[in-house]
Computed example of a mutant assay.
Amino acid sequence: MTAKRVLHVTQVYAGGISRAIRSLVELTPEVEHHLLWAGNEEPDDSLPFATVHSMPQSPRRMAASVRRVQEVAALVRPDIVHAHSSFGGVYARLARIEAPVFYEPHCYKFDDGQQPVVLRGIYRLVEKGLAKRSKATVVLSPHEERLAKSLDAEASTYLLPNVATIAPSLEHPATGFQLPRDVFMIGRLTGQKDPRYFAAVAEEVHAIDPSISFRWIGGIDGEDDGRGARMQQQLETAGVRVLGWLNGDALAAELARPGLYFHSAHYEGFPLSLLDAAAFEHPLAVRQIPTFDGLDLPDARTPAQAARLVLEILDGGPARARAVAAAEHLNMTMNRDAQRTALRQLYTSV
C-alpha cells in the first residue's frame, strides 16, 4: 500500500509549532511527510521529511505565499494538506489545490482578548469565511473545539491531544519536583504569550521577596515591528533573565534546572511548553484562561493574585501539592500513545 502523503504548511516554524510538527512526524513514520515553511528556525535535518520547501515569511506577501502553496502542492501531490497556525491556514485554504486541508489553528487569533474589538471581529470574519474550506479542524482543547463550532456549526473537528516534545535523559534528567526559588516560562515574545503579564508578576513577587529568580525562554517572533524588543526590555527591567530561543540540548539543559513553571499566555490552543515542563517534573501554575478549564491547575487571574500563588507554591503552601499533581496528571493523560492514536484516525479519515 502506498504511504499517505501529507504536506505541512506553516508560516511560523518556531517554538511550539515547530515542536508540534516534529511530534506529528515522529509518531507517524508510516506517513510520507513534506514541509512548506517560513519561520525563525531551520527545519532539523534529523527529521525524516521527504522534501522541504521554503515560503515568504512576511504576511504582507500573502499572494506570493498562496502561489507557493499551489506550486508545492502541484509538485508534491499530497493526499492531505495539514495547515498549521493562522496564516498557514489562510494560505492553504485560499490556494487552488485538490488535496483536502486539515486546519490546525494552534489557537484562534480572534480569541485574543487584548486585541481591539474591531480587529477581533475582522479575524473572526476571515476564519468564518474560510471555515467551509477546511476538510476538518484539528483542535487542541474542548475550548478550541467550541470556537471552531462557533464558526461553522457543521464543522468536522478532531481533538488532537498535545504531548511533550522533549524528554528527560541521563544527561538532562527530570527534576523530581525539586523547587528552588526560581520561576520560568517558555514562549515567543508576542502579545499572545504576554511577557508584560509575566514581568508584572515578577515585579509583584520581587516587592515581597527579591531573592526569587525569573527566566523567560524564548525570543522575538518572525519579522519584529519593535513590539518584541519592547517586551524583552520590559522583562529585563522587571528582573527577568531572557534566554532567547533554545532548542534540543540547550532547551533540555534549561528544563533540567528545577523551578516553578508559570504559564502567562492570555489565550491558547494547548501549550506544548506546559507539557514539556510537566515531562521534566516541574510543578505547574497558570494564568486563568478557558483553555485550562477542568484541569485543576493552580491558577490566578491578575498579576497580584499570580504573585501570591507563586509565593504560596515556593513557600510550601497548599497550592504546592496541586502544582505537582497537575504535572503528574498531564503526564498520564497527554502522552505519545494518545496522540499517535488520534493522528492515525485523522490521517486515515480521507
Rank of each mutant, 00 (worst) to 15 (best):
A92L: 07
R93M: 08
R93P: 03
R93E: 01
L94F: 13
A95L: 00
A95H: 07
A95V: 04
A95E: 00
R96S: 06
R96V: 07
R96L: 11
E98T: 14
E98M: 08
A99L: 01
A99H: 05
A99K: 09
A99W: 02
V101P: 02
F102D: 08
F102H: 12
F102T: 02
Y103D: 03
Y103P: 05
Y103C: 02
E104W: 00
E104P: 08
E104L: 04
E104S: 15
P105H: 05
P105A: 10
P105F: 03
P105C: 05
H106W: 08
H106K: 08
H106T: 06
H106G: 09
H106M: 13
H106N: 14
H106V: 07
C107M: 12
C107L: 11
Y108L: 10
Y108W: 14
Y108M: 08
K109V: 14
F110I: 09
F110L: 10
D111H: 07
D111P: 00
D112H: 12
D112E: 11
G113C: 06
G113W: 13
G113Q: 14
G113V: 13
Q114I: 10
Q114F: 15
Q114C: 03
Q115I: 06
V117G: 13
V118Y: 14
L119D: 07
R120Y: 08
R120Q: 14
R120F: 04
R120C: 11
G121V: 05
I122M: 13
I122Q: 11
I122H: 12
I122W: 12
Y123S: 05
R124Y: 02
R124T: 06
L125V: 06
L125K: 15
V126Y: 03
E127T: 03
E127M: 04
E127K: 09
K128E: 09
K128M: 07
K128A: 15
G129H: 03
G129N: 05
G129K: 07
L130C: 02
L130Q: 04
A131P: 07
A131K: 03
A131V: 01
K132I: 00
R133K: 15
S134H: 08
S134T: 08
K135W: 12
A136K: 02
A136M: 10
A136N: 06
A136V: 04
T137W: 09
T137Q: 11
T137I: 11
T137G: 01
T137S: 10
T137C: 07
V138L: 08
V139P: 05
V139W: 04
V139I: 11
V139M: 01
V139E: 06
V139A: 04
L140P: 01
L140R: 09
L140G: 01
S141R: 03
S141H: 05
S141Y: 03
S141C: 01
S141M: 06
P142L: 01
H143K: 11
H143S: 09
H143V: 01
H143P: 00
E144I: 03
E145V: 03
E145S: 05
R146M: 03
R146T: 06
R146G: 11
R146Q: 09
R146I: 00
R146F: 00
L147I: 04
L147Y: 00
L147N: 08
A148M: 00
A148K: 05
A148I: 01
K149R: 14
S150T: 00
